[in-house]
Each structure stands twice: as structure tokens, then as C-alpha cells.
Design a protein around this nucleic acid. Structure first.
Lengths: 192, 192
DNA sequence: CCCATTCTGAAACATTCGTTTCAGAATTGA
DNA sequence: TCAATTCTGAAACGAATGTTTCAGAATGGG
């Protein structure tokens, strides 16, 4: 019938996400976005929608990436405890070496309070993160790798919420030793 | 020589702080601020300065209030462990009943990455919070109220960063039982 | 009381914001 | 090739942004 869309929508979303991630929702202008996406605002409004809609798509994209990572790790043949400790060490590495904090955390505090759709996406993401930890802890307990005198659901809750504070600490103090020490204590609590 | 400032600056800062707290820095407009402060923008610029300067003053004000609270608690005659557990329970109550999250946490993620002055204020605030916990834990250990087989500085670090995740969890899930369970586990770790 | 000084209120400032418009280029199926 | 349709680019939109201006009201010290 007629012409097709010229730009790669998935790539454009990725670029937009990077800008939102770095600057936050409110500090990002439409010009920032169209510059990074390399498209005209008319194309943006014709395909994706307005700034809010674009942001929702970016947060969705961010959480989809995380979901894939968790699924891959859960499918691993290695011991649950090894998968868990690897995950913790990689999380620490991301906190210390990453340029920006976790986008989900930043967004939870800046946007989720006022935007129900964004809140729902992040709540579902947090639920998956929780389930990921629960599955590993439960399997490690059943395999006798860690002590089982505590409710695995409680431990999953507790550990899941612990990361967030590490991001804040690293923003304020840029002290990587401190983060590593907390991670070591974290693992020790589980295993001892 | 001449006329004095008409408005109560301390009260105006308080009102501005409440707006920044609720909406965040970038989503707050100067009209929002002058409306809440009940002053004209010319008065604001003549006395306090621009939006950034006002924000810095508000964050300072927020952290000053916290400092006073910690000092009062540390001056208490009661047992260190009792002071600590009271503090935790009140923190949980604020998370669950408060309308907005902690302003320091929100600001750390939204502004501290890009504003060195704000970062310094929040880093100092976090340092005091840490010291507050350290002092109580150390005193409780010396008094034999809690086991002393762990470095109190590490425990203070760890617990200090733990709160932040509870705020995030409550924003996303509004599950007060979950927060209370985590707080109970938190105290149990200390005392058992 | 009066003059010098300072504060206030309303209006205006340039700039940027998110969004829309639309002519023309591009692409499709026939 | 052609007509129908859709996309793109540049420009423009009104509204809102943070900030400045300045005339006039208010108040201090002499």
C-alpha cells in the first residue's frame, strides 16, 4: 500500500532508554531523546507516542533484559549456591563499575509514586527479582548447601531489598571496599 | 537604614522543602515553590537565590532535622539496644504511614549524581546516620546486650544501607507486613 | 519628618518545553 | 507507470520554564 517506517524501532528504544537512564525522566527533554534516537519528533509521535509512552516502553525494555538474565541463570546446570554467589559478585561489579545506578531503582523513586503504569511494571520486575532469589535459596537449602533454619521467602524479600541501599551508598561515597565488605557479609549470613 | 525582609525565611524554606520532597527537584516548578512559600519570585531571588540554591538549602534543612533527632536519641539514658530497636520501629512506622519516601534517598538518586554540592550534603548526612548506628551498636556490645562476634562498623554500614530498599519495596508493593517482617529479621540478626 | 535604602508585586524576559502541522518525499500494490 | 497511502523533515505551536526588571510601597536612621 505505502511506505514503511524507516528507522529501527528497537534500536531507537534502546537509545532513548540510555538517555532516560542517565538523566531521569523529568530532566530528559524531547530534544535529548530525538537526538539520541536520530529520528524526527513527528516520526516518534506517529509510531511510539508521546514522552510518557516512550518512557513506559523504555522501562519495559529495561525490565525485559533483566528477566532474560534471571531466566538464563536459573536454567544453569551449576549448583544453586554457586549461581547465587556469582550473581551477587556480578551485581557488586555493576554497582562499582557502572556509570549509572540501576534504572529500575532510580525510576521507582522518581516516577513510580506518580505514574501507575510505571509502578506496575516495576512492581512486576521486583516480583520476578524476588522469585529469582527465592528459587535459588530454596534449591540451595534443599541441596543442603545453606542452612535451612530460616524462611526462604523472608530471606528472598530481605536480600532483594538490600541491593538498593548499596547503589545509594556508592553514589554518595564511591567506596568500593565498603560495597564489597557488605556483599561478603551478605553471603556469609546465608552460608554460615 | 531601610526596610526589613517581610517573610519568615525559615518557614519559607520549610514550605519549599515539602514541595521538593513530594515532587522531586526537576518536576518542581518555580511557580510551585513561590505558591507554597507565599512569596514573590523577586523576593526569593533577592534573599535566597535561584532554584538550585533554594534546593540546597532545603536539603540542608532536611538533614539538619535528622541530625537533631539522632543527637537526641544518643543522649538518651535508656539502654542502647532499646534506643536502637525503638528507632527501627519508628523508621518502619514512617515508611508505612508517611506520604512520601525519605527525601534524602529520593534526592540521592535523582540529583546527587549531577550536583556535587547536594552529593556532599547527603554524604555527610549518611555518614552521621552511620555513626549513629555505630555508636548504638558499639555501646550495646560493650553492655553485653548483643553478641560482639561481628565488627560493629560493618554492621553499621550494612544496616544503614538496608533502609533504602524498604522504601523502594513499599513504593512498589505497599505491603506493610513485608516491611515489618524484614524489620523483625533485622533485629533478630542483631540480638540472637 | 524625611531621605536614603531596601523590599515587594506585577509584568515581562528570552528560552525551552512537549506537541502538532503539513507539504513533499518515498514506497507500495496494481 | 500510476495512484493511493504513509512516512519524514522542518517549521511552528501555545504553554510553561527559570529569571530579571523596575516602579512604587515600606521602613529604617538621623
Amino acid at each position: 500500500m505505502a511506505r514503511n517506517v524507516e528507522f529501527d524501532e528497537a534500536l531507537a528504544i534502546q537509545k532513548a532508554m540510555e538517555v532516560f537512564w542517565k538523566k531521569g525522566y523529568n530532566a530528559t527533554s524531547l530534544r535529548d531523546l530525538t537526538d539520541a534516537m536520530q529520528i524526527n519528533s513527528s516520526s516518534l509521535y506517529n509510531t511510539i507516542g508521546d514522552k510518557q509512552e516512550l518512557f513506559v516502553r523504555c522501562v519495559q525494555h529495561y525490565t525485559n533484559i533483566r528477566k532474560k538474565d534471571w531466566d538464563q541463570r536459573l536454567a544453569s546446570e551449576r549448583s544453586p549456591l554457586a549461581v547465587l554467589t556469582d550473581y551477587i559478585h556480578e551485581a557488586v561489579s555493576i554497582i562499582i563499575n557502572g556509570e549509572d545506578s540501576c534504572m529500575a531503582v532510580k525510576t521507582a523513586f522518581e516516577v513510580a509514586t506518580n505514574d501507575e503504569r510505571v509502578k506496575q511494571i516495576l512492581a512486576a520486575d521486583d516480583q520476578r527479582s524476588n522469585q529469582f532469589l527465592y528459587d535459588l535459596i530454596k534449591k540451595a537449602m534443599d541441596a543442603g548447601e545453606i542452612k535451612n533454619d530460616e524462611d526462604p521467602a523472608l530471606l528472598a524479600d530481605y536480600f532483594n531489598s538490600t541491593w538498593t541501599g548499596w547503589y545509594e551508598s556508592y553514589i554518595l561515597h564511591k567506596d568500593s571496599v565498603k560495597i564489597k565488605r557488605m556483599a561478603a557479609y551478605f553471603i556469609k549470613q546465608l552460608t554460615k
